[in-house]
Amino acid sequence: MTSARDDLFANLRRSLSVTGTERIRVAEVEERLAEAPLGVIPARGQLDAAGRLALFKAMAEAASATVTEVESPEAVPQAVAAYLRDHNLPATLRMGSDPRLAAMPWRDTSLEIASGRSDGHDLNAISHAFGAVAETGTLVMTSGADNPTTLNFLPDNHIVVLSAADVGGDLESVWPKLRKALGKGAMPRALNMVTGPSRSADIEQTLFLGAHGPRSLHIVLVKDAASAG
């Protein structure tokens, strides 16, 4: 195995006519990794806060997600209960240990709450997003006990709580936020960018929702900035 590795690198360097120790090349690489220069940022990713929220909603809906806005974290449980009721879904909900979700008044609803990862038998689950990207209506989810990755994919209906303050304009806006939270060069085990419910067009280019992941994606957008994580 070592020899495969050595051979591969030797061949790479032979083709590139380099040794791998050239100071200029090493410096170029170190500089790029350290500075992570920005490229082209679309104008639509550079809107003000109100514009970002409006664009996020429009793009998420265009990707077949649904969006409800609530004024504060306290209003989330009622909004979730109403969503499930309106869609004739059972009053069950699985969630991780995210303190923001835990702090919400779920007892005010008649929802039956389960906690922890999903084993594939849950109809409904709720997660709290790390952030979002307005330019494409994309949610950014990070793994861990707070919001288990299985909740993003196994349940039929995935509900995601998103703080308005966490909605960034462009895709690149996620990275400084993440580096601030975890440190430079570190990532959560899984970072899931989610844009609408799962789908497939593998049969005759006809698009249908609900391939292997959730059939529906519902976003509860919390306007109150106080809960921003």
Partner: peptide, 17 residues
């Protein structure tokens, strides 16, 4: 729909992965 960034195996405290 899904752009997934994976970095290493399950970590301490991770319930899945």
């Amino acid at each position: 729909v899904y752009t997934t960034f994976s970095t290493g195996p399950r970590r301490a405290g991770d319930p899945d992965g």
